[in-house]
């Protein structure tokens, strides 16, 4: 119980000390060829939960993540789900039982940029500063929206 309280306190203090949006805006990106120009926050959440599987063109969405310990991944997860990646383990265990895999994990933001640029239907996120002409930005996450 003490560990649990200490953990909750730590998360609260860290969240207050390093506000997610204040660190770096997160750009949600897709291939330039994708006809979609914007994406809602809720739609993005469904894509990353693998509940929304197809884009407007009928291509399967291929959501991409950074490794669990990457600060940008943690900020993205907190902003989108109000949860750290490891707090979603139960959800992904159930999905695994149903034959559904979590988003692919790429090694770096550059790897995400390269994959998104060359793969229709793929969607990922990088720091806003990293966005270049190879990809199209769908959404900019500057702070966690109210839940």
């Amino acid at each position: 119980m003490n560990m649990c309280i200490a953990y909750a306190l730590l998360v609260t203090i860290l969240s207050a000390w390093f506000p997610v949006g204040a660190v770096e805006p997160i750009a949600v990106i897709t291939a330039v060829s994708n006809p979609l120009n914007t994406l809602s926050f809720d739609a993005l959440g469904l894509i990353y939960l693998r509940k929304s599987q197809m884009d407007m063109e009928g291509n399967r969405w291929v959501p991409l993540n950074l490794p669990v310990n990457d600060p940008l991944r943690r900020s993205f997860s907190l902003a989108l789900f109000s949860m750290l990646p490891e707090e979603q383990d139960d959800y992904w265990n159930i999905q695994y039982f149903n034959g559904i895999s979590p988003p692919k994990v790429m090694a770096s933001e550059e790897a995400i940029l390269r994959f998104v640029a060359s793969t229709p239907g793929s969607i990922g996120y990088v720091g806003k500063q990293k966005v270049d002409g190879r990809v199209k930005m769908l959404l900019l996450i500057t702070s966690p929206p109210p839940k």
């Binding site: 490794p67 992904w92 695994y96 979590p102 994990v105 790429m106 790897a111 994959f115």
Partner: peptide, 16 residues
Amino acid sequence: VANEVDGGYRLGTGYS
């Protein structure tokens, strides 16, 4: 290979 880090086997997600 390093671009994608979750290929191969991982406990709880099986072998890809």
